[in-house]
Write a protein that binds this DNA or RNA. Structure first.
Length: 112
DNA sequence: AACCTGACTTGGC
DNA sequence: TGCCAAGCCAGGT
């Protein structure tokens, strides 16, 4: 799989995260086929800008927001609007709101 | 090509 | 729980 395909897979995976749920950068990277590429996912999102992507549903492995203050505020606002709850420490309980990966795009399968 | 950076993650204290 | 260090890997200088 080339980088372009992987990038598209990442975007597709992110789009498949349901409302009210969150996924980590590492999780997205792995589901898209490249474990240990969490940072690349972050870079892709930065380049992608908004583009109607549910970027706010992507958080770090601890359920915290990996953005600068201003942007994080917007991300939190959007998540709370979807029903995601933040704990007193500002983190999300991934056991409750973490996405299990179900419903993501079908694995790359050769067209019949 | 060496070196720095970063929307990350994990393991130790 | 919180902070640090190290590991990670593609991009930018």
């Amino acid at each position: 799989m080339n980088d372009d395909d992987w990038t598209r897979a990442v975007l597709a995976t992110i789009r498949s995260v349901p409302s009210g749920r969150v996924a980590s950068y590492g999780q997205i990277a792995a589901l898209a086929g490249r474990p240990r590429h969490a940072r690349q996912v972050g870079r892709i999102l930065r380049n992608a800008g908004d583009r109607g992507l549910p970027w706010h549903r992507i958080v770090n492995g601890q359920g915290a927001l990996s953005l600068d203050r201003p942007a994080a505020r917007e991300q939190r606002r959007r998540l709370e609007a979807e029903g995601v709850e933040f704990r007193p420490n500002g983190r999300i309980d991934l056991r409750k709101f973490g996405w299990d990966g179900s419903g993501r795009p079908a694995p790359r399968v050769k067209k019949a």
